[in-house]
Nucleic acid binder design. Structure first.
Lengths: 156, 156
DNA sequence: ATACAAGTTGAAGTCGACTTCAACGCAAGG
DNA sequence: CCTTGCGTTGAAGTCGACTTCAACTTGTAT
């Protein structure tokens, strides 16, 4: 598959694919002339990367988890500790969600006065922020829909 | 309270407080000479900001939600739609968590072969990333522990 | 053969949320 | 008086994950 095919199928822009390769997350090799040719497995690899990102791993962290071939070679304990982190984050976000809903519903003129809100605020502040794990779902504004992709983004 | 007191009590660095003020998220006024003096309510305001950030609002979004006095003045529907987004994110993260746990537990030599993993991968990739809402908990590497003071840590 | 779309590269730009820096102000204490 | 030390400012730097750009080279269709 050439770069634009991968881009179309996965929704990951070509520039990102090149970037990933430069960062060592992807291997393409077997170039046809100057052009990259990717093995079909690249789609799996991109899925892995997406999963890793969604879990809050940085690209560099993800990199050390992939063998050159793109297979998972991970330290299982690292993985499950990350899963725990994600779970913690989930709990914090649920608190946040409750906080938002309360703020939306509570008719109190000043939320600062409402004990419920104050508690949520404390939880959200000391909890949710204090030990925030990672940039979580950062830059992923659009793009990346590895599962399938009708039409991709225009790249450079 | 002067800036360093606020910093100590909240854990938010002075530079951040100045930054927030410059961005219009905080009001300090009543300066003593050249020095900022904050009303005690600033702590509440910082809590609100922390909550907003944890919910995935950008500082600018948070700004429009606070009246100059630091009170919530929010468009309630905006709030609850944000709460929904957070809920969606929570669901996605739960998928991610399951994916991580599976990867940690599954003995298959190649995860690419495991149907369970493939499914999780697809979900994580097309779901979790595709419509990620906001930078969520971005830069908050350390700092910000509004709920507790400089010493002694209790609960979480 | 020639045009043109698509690929390649390294370098630089972007974005958000801060941090760091240099240069300077000012009040209190030795 | 003069140092110490916190405070102030605007400007610039940082970080991660990309994107965009300029300048080319290639593959393919006509």
């Amino acid at each position: 598959m050439d770069i634009s095919q991968v881009a179309k199928q996965t929704g990951v822009p070509a520039s990102t694919l090149r970037y990933y390769e430069k960062q060592g997350l992807l291997v393409s090799l077997n170039r046809q002339g100057a052009r990259r040719m990717f093995a079909p497995s690249v789609i799996q690899q991109l899925g892995l990367i997406a999963l890793g990102q969604a879990a809050g791993f940085s690209l560099q962290e993800i990199k050390v988890m992939l063998t050159p071939g793109g297979r998972v070679k991970i330290d299982r304990s690292l993985l499950s500790s990350k899963a725990q982190e994600v779970d913690i984050l989930v709990k914090q976000l649920q608190v946040v969600s409750r906080g938002l809903r309360h703020a939306a519903a509570c008719p109190a003129p000043s939320h600062a006065e409402c004990p419920t809100f104050r508690r949520l605020l404390r939880d959200a502040a000391s909890g949710a922020l204090r030990q925030a794990p990672k940039p979580l779902v950062a830059g992923a504004k659009r793009a990346s829909s590895v599962g399938r992709a009708s039409r991709a983004r225009k790249d450079e």
